[in-house]
Amino acid sequence: MAYSDKVLDHYNNPRNVGALDKRDPNVGTGMVGAPECGDVMKLQLRVDPGTGIIEDARFKTFGCGSAIASSSLATEWLKGKTLDQALTIKNTDIVNELSLPPVKIHCSVLAEDAIRAAIADYQKKNTAVAGQPVAQTV
């Protein structure tokens, strides 16, 4: 199967590969996987606490070219967005941008799941922190 030029570009020059400190309260981490192909994808974002805007995003994916390209593209799109805007990114947007064939659609689903998992992790961390003083008064 031939990959599209955009997939090859992201595969050969992946953007934002790496890791952020997952203990940082401003960092959300999403770890997702697709058992049918054995892929695993970690996607992280750091939110500027002042503006609520995603200032950095990183990924590391073990999987096929399409899975790597999908997560690379996702990190590019995340930067500069608010969390609400980030949640509007759909796997179909990734499919269209990368011209993924039907057998590779699950790679884009994985990237969407990773974005959602990272945001959920960030929100969980931050509501937990906000709830702390309340818990202490009990």
Partner: peptide, 13 residues
Amino acid sequence: SKDVPPELLEEVF
């Protein structure tokens, strides 16, 4: 991914 236990993903990663 919700069908995959998170510990397994961590371990595989």
